[in-house]
Design a binder for these strands. Structure first.
Length: 553
RNA sequence: GCCCUGUUAGCUCAGUUGGCAGAGCAGCUGACUCUUAAUCAGCGGGUCGCAGGUUCGAGUCCUGCACAGGGCACCA
């Protein structure tokens, strides 16, 4: 099979016939040919092609020459039996290489066929070295003029950065000890017409990296690594949940009532039904209905949408794991969470020491635990139950609404502003026993109704997870929702309406349960050492760029 | 929404007190059979983010706008 792919001008007839039932007629070939020479065909036509960057024009011109002079088809074809660059490197055989060095008649070196994008290119007359890259790594391709057809060598020696190639040959080594493919067959698989970034620094402009992630991915090797790690984390969590007996489900992302959290939703509209819909801010109320229906353990890993600003820790769409276990409680979910994070950390590194910013975080040791009220008192200097002291403190700290705002909302503000930052970022910490007043979906303590069976997990200055013993008393739940709606200001309230059907479901009867929400993006940040959420989301939200050629009416 | 910083060649970046727009990489032409960000010789490449203003003169100073990064606010 060696040397099978190649320099054919166009795909052969059988191949294209199998694709679409047509062979490629001459006029199509001519059409393609014309398109390859915009600078020639449009010389006297000023428009777009003329001001196309010289670099793009140079690439088009080179492609045109290859087509004319060497019969190259610049868009490639199916290739079977390709090795990943990592696998190809692994089959290198030192003894076969040594034997070949001693006597070139004796060539037992393994052969490989590989493909990748050119990221380095060094042509030295009759010898050309280039480095190609795929998602498994880099590999040098060495091309000797004497080892392959002359047209193939000419393409190799004039190759542009960014071109995608297929090469076939023996896995060997250079005199300088670089493991490489000594190609005896070399072909273009896709011409890259866009000028690439600087080959040493790559794309360092953050905006370009996010807007043109496809360039960032092949330019900076950390990018693909990060997203492969993300994939491994998610699949580890998924199989962990499956092993624990949880059933994975998908619930609506478009909801008539956006419930389960207090965030502002995105609004959309269903044309045929003529109804407004909201993108979900949480799947919670649907997942709990499944417990009502009889599922004992469920989870969903998917997107939530919250109409808020962006920051290093926030993207308007983000991925959450939510899970519910019938006959569990918040303690059940705490144990589950700790074990799950530990196994995810171990799947991608050493759980006992994961670097995140300036911190080395140990997920192997039991996580810390501290009561909400306890942290609060340490940070603020008074009990969270002491309303007068809270109001005084809030006033002292310059809160404008210190007199009017609900006591527990003040407590929550003070906690977020002063207590949360006191938590040790390098210690995963469960903050337990949140105030009931700010936990409307949570069961209160039996003997202390101001506290609830709820915890949040903080790591690296971020809230990672949130769990409760679920409130399943329908009358109390209805009361909480009602209070919540009355308490909200007009802006927030505009999006809130009571989910009557959820209350009905609770009346049908939901078993006692523990529930958990875990931010996947933030967990991935922690486990990959990325301090911006945009670096763990493939296509983070960006404002569209202004149109340059604006035709205003 | 607010504050700070940034925006100069395809990319990475310099640009002095306001006085002719610079480098490296990439590109083009040539040399080179063991390179490693190859090297050497030569050549081309600019709406200095956009729009105004001050000035004899603006990449540089001022105002507004756009986008980005960081911070704040929002996010129970």
């Amino acid at each position: 099979m060696r040397g099978k792919f190649s320099c054919n001008r166009f795909p052969d007839a059988t191949r294209s016939a199998s694709n679409n039932g047509n062979t490629i007629p001459l006029f199509v070939a001519l059409f393609l040919h014309i398109r390859y020479h915009p600078t020639i065909t449009m010389t006297d036509n000023k428009p777009q092609q003329q001001d196309e960057s010289q670099l793009v024009a140079a690439r088009r011109a080179k492609m045109g020459r290859w087509i004319d002079d060497y019969g190259v088809y610049p868009w490639g074809n199916r290739e079977d039996n390709l090795s990943s660059l990592e696998d190809a490197r692994a089959v290198f055989d030192q003894s076969a290489h040594d034997a070949f060095k001693e006597n070139s008649e004796n060539d037992a070196r393994p052969r490989v066929k590989v493909a990748g994008r050119c990221v380095q290119h060094r042509a030295m007359g009759k010898l050309t070295f280039l480095v190609i890259r795929d998602d498994s790594g880099d590999l040098q391709i060495s091309c000797s003029k004497s080892a392959m057809p002359i047209e193939q060598f000419k393409v190799a020696s004039k190759l542009d950065y960014g071109d995608i190639v297929v090469a076939e040959g023996a896995m060997g080594m250079t005199n300088k000890g670089e493991i490489c493919v000594w190609a005896d067959s070399f072909g273009l698989a896709c011409k890259s017409l866009a000028p690439p970034p600087e080959k040493f620094h790559g794309l360092s402009d953050a905006e370009l990296r996010y807007r043109q992630r496809y360039v960032d991915m092949y330019t900076s090797d950390d990018t693909i690594k990060t997203f492969k790690t993300r994939s491994r984390i998610v699949s580890t969590i998924r199989s962990f949940m499956h092993d624990e007996g949880y059933v994975e489900v998908e619930t609506p992302m478009m909801q008539p009532v956006a419930g389960g959290a207090a965030a502002k939703p995105f609004e959309t509209h269903h044309n045929a039904l003529g109804i407004p819909l909201f993108l979900r801010i949480a799947p919670e109320l649907y997942l709990k209905r499944l417990l009502v229906g009889g599922m004992r353990k469920v989870f969903e890993i998917n997107r939530n949408f919250r109409n808020e600003g962006v920051s290093r820790k926030h993207n308007p769409e983000f991925t959450m794991l939510e899970s519910y276990q019938a006959f569990g409680d918040c303690e059940t979910m705490l144990e589950l969470t700790e074990e799950m994070i530990r196994s995810a950390a171990n799947a991608v590194g050493d759980a006992s020491s994961m670097q995140f910013g300036d911190h080395v975080i140990d997920y192997a040791k039991p996580f810390d635990r501290v009561g909400y009220g306890e942290v609060f008192e340490q940070a603020v200097g008074c009990s969270m139950h002491d309303e007068a002291a809270i109001r005084a403190k809030a006033k002292e700290l310059g809160f404008g609404d210190a007199d009017s705002k609900n006591h527990w909302l003040l407590v929550s503000d003070l906690f977020d502003g002063y207590a949360e930052p006191m938590l040790n970022p390098s210690r995963p910490t469960f903050v337990t026993d949140f105030p009931s007043a700010i936990s409307p979906l949570t069961r209160p303590h039996e003997n202390e109704e101001t506290l609830s069976h709820r915890w949040e997990l903080f790591v690296g200055d971020m809230e990672i997870a949130n769990a409760y013993t679920e409130l399943n008393d329908p009358d109390l739940q209805l009361q909480r929702f009602t209070e919540q709606m009355q308490g909200a200001d007009d802006e927030v309230n505009a999006f809130r309406s009571l989910d009557d059907d959820f209350i009905h479901a609770l009346r049908v009867g939901m078993p006692p349960a523990g529930g958990l929400g875990l931010g996947i993006d933030r967990l991935v940040m922690l486990l990959t050492g990325m301090e911006s959420i945009r670096d763990v989301i493939l296509f983070p939200l960006m404002r569209p760029q202004e149109q340059t050629d604006e035709a205003d009416a």
